Simulated assay, not measured.
Amino acid sequence: MPGPEATDATEVDPGHIVELERALARVAYLLTRVRRHDQAMVQCGITMDRASVPLLRLLADADEPMRLGEVATRLDVEAPHVSRQIQRLEKTGYVERVADPDDRRAQLVRPTDSGRRAVEAFRQVMRGWMRDALADWTPEDLKSLAVLNHRMVDDFLDHAEIIGDFGATARERPHRSA
């Protein structure tokens, strides 16, 4: 829900939206480049393809094992894609399948201890890069950036839910603050 400082959508300067979109595209590009991923894997001492990283992160952050369909929905990808990635992650020992206690015919997937360690190693490398890149920022600026980014993502998710995209859920958004 917008705060009192929010303006009507018709009052938003289109130039600001253009610049924001450009900035977000640059960030997405920088964070998802193949070379950056390969460097992170070397620093972590692990092997994992780029498509598996968000999947394993999602599973590591989940409170309980998840069905493959739920994983696909949350990542906004097709179920066959998730099945292939899960098979790869199983082969590397990063995830395991377990029986669904509510339906023994169904299976859930969860990270192994090795998978959790891999996610944490990857996060540490990424956080180190961010810490180095933002070393000259003040603590106040870093806090403001984090708060505004969470607010933006929350608003994007709220808008997506209105138009029927339920890929991410409210329980994944604990950072609602101004």
Rank of each mutant, 00 (worst) to 15 (best):
M1G: 10
P2V: 03
P2I: 02
P4Y: 03
D8N: 02
A9V: 08
T10E: 04
D13E: 08
P14C: 05
P14A: 06
H16D: 05
I17M: 06
V18Y: 13
E21V: 11
E21W: 07
R22S: 09
R22Q: 11
A23K: 06
R26M: 08
L31N: 11
L31W: 07
L31K: 12
T32E: 08
V34Y: 06
D38T: 10
D38W: 07
V42D: 04
C44D: 07
C44T: 11
T47C: 00
T47S: 10
T47N: 12
M48L: 15
S52T: 05
L55Y: 00
L55W: 03
L56E: 00
L59K: 00
A62W: 01
M66L: 15
E70L: 06
A72D: 02
A72S: 06
A72H: 03
T73M: 14
T73S: 11
T73F: 07
L75F: 04
D76M: 11
E78Y: 13
A79C: 03
P80W: 09
S83F: 13
I86Q: 03
Q87I: 12
Q87G: 11
Q87S: 15
R88I: 09
R88A: 15
E90F: 10
V95M: 04
P101V: 10
R105L: 13
R105Y: 07
R105I: 05
A106S: 15
L108G: 03
V109L: 01
P111R: 00
T112F: 04
T112I: 07
D113L: 05
G115R: 04
A118E: 00
E120M: 01
F122M: 06
F122T: 05
R123M: 07
Q124T: 05
G128V: 05
W129R: 04
W129C: 01
M130K: 02
D132W: 01
D136H: 03
W137D: 00
W137E: 08
P139K: 01
P139W: 00
E140L: 00
S144R: 14
A146I: 06
A146G: 08
A146L: 06
V147Y: 14
N149E: 14
M152C: 12
V153K: 04
D154R: 11
D155R: 10
F156P: 01
L157C: 14
H159P: 09
E161L: 15
I162N: 12
I163L: 15
I163V: 15
G164S: 12
F166K: 13
G167P: 12
T169H: 12
A170N: 15
R171E: 09
P174M: 12
